[in-house]
Design a protein around this nucleic acid. Structure first.
Length: 843
RNA sequence: GCCCGGGUGGCGAAAUGGUAGACGCAGCGGACUCAAAAUCCGCCGCCGCGAGGCGUGUCGGUUCGACUCCGACCCCGGGCACCA
């Protein structure tokens, strides 16, 4: 048996692990715990290489920590609610739940052969009635604690399908099914009051030492703390003033207009009187709700004819516009425009012929602005009592004067808005409240939880809960009279904001068990896609605080993820064809025949457009199925392949090439194992050299795994295999080296490692063997090779004893033949010696 | 538009102020074989016979020395609050 048959050995060792209960986590206060978690998947249908990469990474960490003696928790679940299930229901007449459950079964069947060290006994799906009920209990507790509010906010409205659309369902401003131009519409919705935690969530970012800097920066920018001035413009001829927020009070004398959002109360009031303005506002609303859509739209405004009085000089008045680029959700929904020092304002002013007065100059000299607003530091000009001041001093002065005049005050603002959780959809967790004609909005009684979704529904566009004949009807928990259920369901981000806590006690009768949570929390290592860097992680950080406040987590869990690793995505080219009505039809790689520089549709031979390689996603269909690789080569090969080559934080473009090479390497390792058993006597020198190589490998592979540089750990394992292959050492020494090889391989290719371990007479299972430790003495070398540069370019090497000092190295350098040739008799101008690293001879 | 990343041989990459290209893929040459597969050995950034020159997206700077630090720009990707 010189070939390793993955199909035989992999199920065998998986059964052995299961029989030994290796991966079932049990609370054990005597042992240090380690909670490793990968972001749970959405059950979209089948697993793809991104999943394989993600879960293998987590598994390498879990198995490595286990070998180091930690009591490891490594659970798994399904982020099971969401839009695709409803789309499937409409497209294929499948019930969302049946579709989701079938997908979970399929994906689980695909996952199990990977041999992941998961505790499947803790598996959960967010659509489980149990999970739904506990989430509803959390909602009720948060409601009671004042963490929930209800207010108006805007949604994308499809006026043909009469339904709310997700941003993803808006394509070029039109509904994806109806093709109708989408409108913004205001609805009363449920919110979590995350904005109240802005300051705390921002400040605590500093404590997240083991998070990537880029994620911390993105979160900080998202929360967006700014210091500024909020003040009131008096409106000529109206009693009600216009409240404005600005971060540039210093530029107040450069103001040439004021503007409000089309959704601002003033705009709405004026609309009633002016059909022209109403038309303009209606046009503005004919765009999506995303910030991107608003910011990239052409800047347009409508002069209301109103004028506001300059707060620092009553003799100046400014026109008031309604402008499409102003967000109602940020600040007060109203601004003053200073075109010289804000690019957006500048474009607006040029378009509508408004004055552009520079009030900051780079050097304090008179200054004119051209096509580009001046936003750098400088000195104030054209600003009366502010002239000559720095921007910072001018800001302070303006704020002081406005405050003294009683027209406003300094104010800290946050970009972060409250978290709207209402969704007008079926496939989500029902919001457990009732609307009672007598009592108003009433929380459901906890005894009635879970409030589950009705199974008998119809799937035309819109919310089937609204149309259901009986589901809405319920008794009011307060007065007992007839009431109607809330038909909004929760944002699926709610589901993913506490699943990590539920995993610590998946059977508990309450959302969490405080003892279990205290033992297992926090997640020591969280792993997931960088696309979740802001929303999911921020919501989870908020939720942990809310759960502490409502008694569901211990104080120590406020930051639930100690260390975060954001893996790169697995990308793939996209394939598209024009479909009906100019819409794009995305094609999966299976449907396409790819040739050099072009692609055609497999079914008809029609030309297919090749798009950029981007994140694999259901909606773009650029998804690859890992089943073939596992079937052909086995799980170890697939695992080895996704860990090699690309650094884990970077995107990797999937290509079929390389799986073969991974398989060949694993076969080679197995051959080396068999050769080690059969080898001869060898020399002591060779045995010693192999021992050094072994300890070098232990040190390097350990460092690679610790540093999340799995690709480097893999490279070091290749080098170690090369060293063993070349070694003249005897059987015993080679077997010892290969036993260490088995241990070092075990986090990545656990089945092969077990097979090797057994073949080489290792005790028990390698999964239970403690991680090897490198002997520092064996990592030292007697001599080292120092590169010698001349004027910064490498010209040769010198051999120096390991502990050589500067003088000794200098002597060796000056004696070196190559150096003498470059010096040509002259003395060097300078000799840079960095012991242990390099020598540079400067001529 | 705003925020955050990335860009190094034919390809995936390594080197985070000190030998650019470890390791792997692809390719080329050889051994073994009747032959093929598998395996093993060697070569492998570009130009040049060579000495040597050039080379880490582009341009400029700091340094004895820059993929690495600083400034400006170009291209590609992620996020932008209802995709998950």
């Amino acid at each position: 048996m010189s070939r390793l048959n993955a199909r035989e050995i992999e199920p065998k060792w998986q059964a052995a692990w299961a029989a030994a209960g290796c991966f079932t986590a049990r609370r054990d206060p005597a042992r240090p715990k380690y909670y490793v978690l990968e972001m749970f998947p959405y059950p979209s249908g089948r697993i793809h290489m991104g999943h394989v990469r993600n879960y293998t990474m987590g598994d390498v960490v879990a198995r490595y920590k286990r070998a180091q003696g930690f009591n490891v928790l490594h659970p798994f679940g399904w982020d099971a609610f969401g839009l695709p299930a409803e789309n499937a229901a409409m497209e294929r007449r499948v019930h969302p739940e049946d579709w989701t459950r079938a997908n979970i079964a399929t994906m689980k069947a695909q996952m199990r052969p990977l041999g992941l060290s998961l505790d499947w006994s803790r598996e959960l799906a967010t659509c489980d009635a149990d999970y739904v009920g506990h989430q509803q209990a959390l909602f009720l507790d948060m409601l009671a604690a004042g963490l929930v509010t209800r207010k108006a906010s805007v949604v994308n409205w499809d006026p043909v399908d009469m339904t709310v659309l997700a941003n993803e369902q808006v394509e070029n401003g039109r509904g994806w099914r109806s093709g109708a131009v989408v409108e913004r519409r205001e609805l009363t919705q449920w919110f979590f009051r995350i904005a109240d935690y802005s300051e705390e969530l921002l400040a605590a970012i500093d404590t997240l030492k083991a998070w990537p800097d880029k994620v911390r920066l993105m979160q900080a920018n998202w929360i967006g703390k700014s210091q500024g001035l909020q003040f009131r413009f008096e409106i000529v001829g109206r009693a009600e003033p216009l409240e404005v927020y600005t971060t540039r009070p210093d530029t107040l004398f450069g103001a040439s207009f004021a503007a409000v959002s089309p959704d601002h109360p003033l705009a709405r009031a004026l609309e009633a009187e002016s059909p022209a303005l109403a038309t303009f506002c209606a046009e503005c609303r004919r765009t999506g709700t995303s910030e991107e859509a608003l910011e990239t739209a052409e800047k347009r405004g409508f002069d209301t004819g109103l004028r506001v009085v300059h707060p620092l000089d009553d003799t100046i008045t400014l026109p008031v516009y309604v402008a499409n680029f102003i967000l109602m959700d940020y600040g007060t929904g109203a601004i003053f425009g200073c075109p010289a020092h804000d690019q957006r304002d500048l474009e607006f002013a040029r378009r509508y012929g408004l004055a552009v007065t520079a009030v900051v100059s780079p050097d304090g000299a008179p200054f004119e602005v051209g096509d580009t607003a001046f936003t750098d530091p400088g000195r104030m000009i054209n600003s009366r009592f502010l002239d000559g001041l720095t921007i910072e001093a001018a800001k302070a002065e303006v704020i002081a004067r406005i405050e003294a005049a009683g027209r406003g005050s300094a104010r800290t603002n946050f970009r972060l808005r409250d978290w709207g959780i209402s969704r007008q959809r079926y496939w989500g967790c029902p919001i457990p409240v009732l609307h009672c004609p007598t009592c108003g909005v009433v929380p459901e009684a906890k005894a009635n939880l879970p409030i589950v979704l009705p199974k008998d529904i119809d799937f035309s566009p819109g919310n089937p809960l609204d149309r259901h004949p009986t589901w809405r009807n319920a008794a009011c928990p307060a007065c007992g009279g007839a009431a109607l259920r809330e038909t909004d369901t929760m944002d699926t981000f709610v589901d993913s904001s506490w699943y990590f806590a539920r995993f610590t006690a998946p059977g508990a009768a309450t959302p969490t068990d405080l003892d279990d949570a205290a033992y297992w929390m926090n997640v020591d290592q969280y792993i997931g896609g960088v696309e979740h860097a802001i929303l999911h992680l921020l919501y989870s950080r908020f939720f942990a605080r809310a759960m502490i406040r409502t008694g569901h987590l211990p104080e120590s869990a406020a930051e639930p993820f100690d260390a975060l690793f954001t893996q790169g995505m697995v990308t793939h080219e996209t394939y598209a064809m024009p479909g009906e009505g100019g819409r794009t039809v995305w094609l999966s790689p299976d449907e396409v025949i790819r040739a050099e520089g072009s692609a055609t549709l497999r079914a008809t031979g029609a030309a297919v457009e090749i798009g950029p390689s981007i994140k694999m996603s259901k909606s773009k269909k650029n998804v690859v199925d890992p089943d073939d690789i596992i079937a052909q080569y086995g799980a170890d090969t697939a695992r080895w392949f996704v860990m090699s080559d690309s650094p884990p934080e970077r995107d990797v473009e999937w290509t079929a090439a390389g799986a073969e090479a991974a398989w060949r390497h694993l076969q080679r390792v197995w051959r080396l194992t068999l050769e080690a058993r059969a080898g001869g006597a060898g020399t002591p020198e060779a045995a010693h050299a192999l021992d050094r190589a072994t300890h070098r490998a232990i040190a390097d592979v350990t460092a690679g795994i610790e540093g999340f540089a799995f690709n480097k750990a893999v490279a070091k394992l290749y080098e170690f295999a090369n060293a063993v292959a070349r070694s003249e050492a005897g059987a015993e020494a080679r077997a010892a080296a290969m036993r260490v090889m088995a241990q070092l391989l075990s986090p990545m290719t656990p089945h092969l490692a077990e097979e090797m371990w057994a073949a080489l007479g290792g005790a028990g299972l390698v999964v239970d063997a403690p991680w090897p430790v490198a002997d520092p003495a064996l990592l030292q070398c007697d001599t080292l090779t120092l590169p010698v540069q001349v004027n910064g370019k490498k010209r040769g090497d010198i051999e120096v004893p390991a502990g050589a000092d500067r003088a000794a190295i200098e002597a060796l350098v000056m004696a070196d033949e190559t150096v003498r040739r470059w010096l040509d008799g002259a003395a060097p101008k300078k000799l840079v010696v960095v012991p242990g690293r390099i020598v540079n001879v400067v001529l």
